[in-house]
């Protein structure tokens, strides 16, 4: 099957290694992966800020880039959720476009969901040793039903012990532009999240979204926690957790 990897803008800019980890995992699952070179942003910043016109423009661009793929996979519940649950709404005034968007939405998956339910990945390349606590990001969990999938994948790693944190399903406080418009509130919510993470006393908090990742890592470090690693699920599964940079 031909899978289009939607890298996402935050992975592209902040953590390119996660993009390569996702690529490695998809290939390990036997997928033929294409990475459209012109891809940029899914349009979520505009959509969530009330700027539908901008969001629609970018949605059309994503459609053109990925329409030919059998599947579209993103290492992000937030971006996959944007395509999967909101693109049809964005295009609702144009019936033909809405139908194409609906077809794109139906074949778009968050990475762990895809690896578990579509590609049915048998064994994972990584060999992480240590305890992990998993943060459920909001869009992945509540828009796409990503909950068991990452845990099932981690369970394939004999060196991993999973410890659930209190409030794993609660928001970390990122919220896109919210994090810079209401920085104090955002940081206060992140503090509670990080208290839960620390209560789990794990070597690493693992998650599937870059927004949460930057927010949680930034808050843990500001709180003086230099020990708890903040890792993307793809890095852990792919075995890309050594510090390279």
């Amino acid at each position: 099957m031909r899978v289009g990897l939607f890298v996402t803008c935050l992975v592209d800019m902040m953590r390119p290694r996660i993009g390569f980890s996702a690529l490695k995992l998809l290939e390990a699952a036997g997928c033929e992966v294409t990475v459209p070179a012109t891809q940029t942003c899914c349009g979520q910043p505009g959509y969530n800020s009330g700027d539908r016109a901008s969001a629609l423009g970018l949605a059309k661009k994503v459609l053109a880039e990925f329409e030919a793929c059998d599947y579209v996979v993103a290492p992000s519940g937030s971006c996959a959720g944007m395509i999967r649950t909101h693109y049809a709404d964005l295009a609702k005034d144009d019936e033909a476009l809405a139908a194409r968007m609906a077809r794109l939405s139906a074949k778009t998956y968050e990475l762990s969901d895809f690896l578990t339910n579509i590609a049915k990945l048998e064994s994972v390349p990584g060999n992480f040793q240590g305890s992990i606590t998993y943060h459920d990001s909001c869009a992945g969990l509540r828009e796409l039903g990503v909950k068991a999938q990452p845990r099932a994948l981690l369970a394939k790693m004999p060196g991993v012990s999973l410890t659930e944190m209190p409030g794993a399903e609660e928001c970390c406080g990122f919220g896109g532009a919210f994090s810079v418009k209401f920085g104090e509130i955002s940081a206060a919510i992140a503090e509670r999240k990080c208290e839960g993470i620390r209560a789990a006393n794990a070597d690493a908090v693992v998650l599937g979204d870059l927004g949460c990742m930057l927010n949680i890592e930034g808050k843990l470090r500001r709180m003086g926690d230099e020990k708890t690693r903040v890792l993307h699920l793809a890095e852990v599964l792919a075995g890309d957790t050594e510090d390279k940079f």
Partner: peptide, 21 residues
């Protein structure tokens, strides 16, 4: 500036995925 009022901002790796790819 609001981001760093209450937390740090993790540094990027330094190159984009697209240029590395």
């Amino acid at each position: 500036p609001e981001w760093t009022l209450g937390r740090d901002f993790p540094a990027p790796e330094g190159k984009t995925f697209r240029e590395l790819y």
